[in-house]
Amino acid sequence: MADVKPRLGLWQRLRRDRFLLLLGLPGVALVVLFHYGPLLGNVIAFKDYQPYLSIWEAPWVGFANFEVIVNGDPQFLNALKNTLIISFLQIIVVFPIPIGIALLLNSLLSERLKRVVQSVLYLPHFMSWVIVVALFQHMLGNAGIYNNWARVQDLPLLHIIGDPDLFFTLITAQVIWKDAGWGTIIFLAAISRVDTELFEAVAVDGGGRMRQLWHVTLPAIRSVIILLLILKLGDVLTVGFEQIILQQGPVGLDNSEVLDTYVYNHGVVGGNWGVSAAVGLVKGLVGAVLVLGANKVAHLFGERGLYARW
């Protein structure tokens, strides 16, 4: 029915859809204000902004604020280095774990057991970073539950919390604890959509469980893996801000400063608003370019990627 209607003019359509548009208005206004609005604030990257001046009064300084990115500033380079190390650890160490757990869960024959394990492993994802950091401190801290127990048993004590050399390890372990279980959900969904006839076909051809895994299950989740890797690459300059800022105190900035905390510590706390805004702006641009670039590579390999080819 809808297809044979004559095409309406712009004004007629506006009149017809006015209530529909009215319903969308609050959402559109909020998207524009809180997603596009902040972009305007990036002008201070080109200004010498101080909070007592308004944004408009602050004098223009050209690209002076961006110098820190290219002139080998040790604090900036340190933050960049730490960010890349943590991101690298998250791709190499953290990323495969949910895939492994998903394959393990999928191989369970009891549907009930699977469900129980899933509900346990998903739970930490819903804990705030404050809770996760608190739990780690009270479990593994110098006066935490493990050390209390180890002292009584005369076992070696752990000094993990607050040790700068172990900070990357700690951060990575926390991410695994919080999100590895939850990360399985998308792989399990992809596996569950596999046609069971494919498994049977492998079995008929005399293939065992390993062959099913290799020839059916893994190819089934390949595009999901690629999609998530693309998203991860786009986020390579962003590592858990709340997680890290909560734990910077005892560790010191040498090992714990990442780009986002640098922007906060340098700008909001330290008063170098312009420089921080410049770093944040470049970081955002690089992130967008990385997503688009990674997606392009996925297309070249014949994958669908984040969005279809334009």
């Binding site: 902040p38 604030g41 990036n42 986002d260 700008g267 909001v268 805004a277 944040g280 955002g284």
Partner: peptide
């Protein structure tokens, strides 16, 4: 307009200024 916001995130300082 909605979809495009997925590509970027303004960051701490611009959000604070807003």
């Amino acid at each position: 307009l909605v979809l495009f916001t997925m590509l970027f995130n303004a960051g701490i300082i611009p959000n604070y200024l807003l």
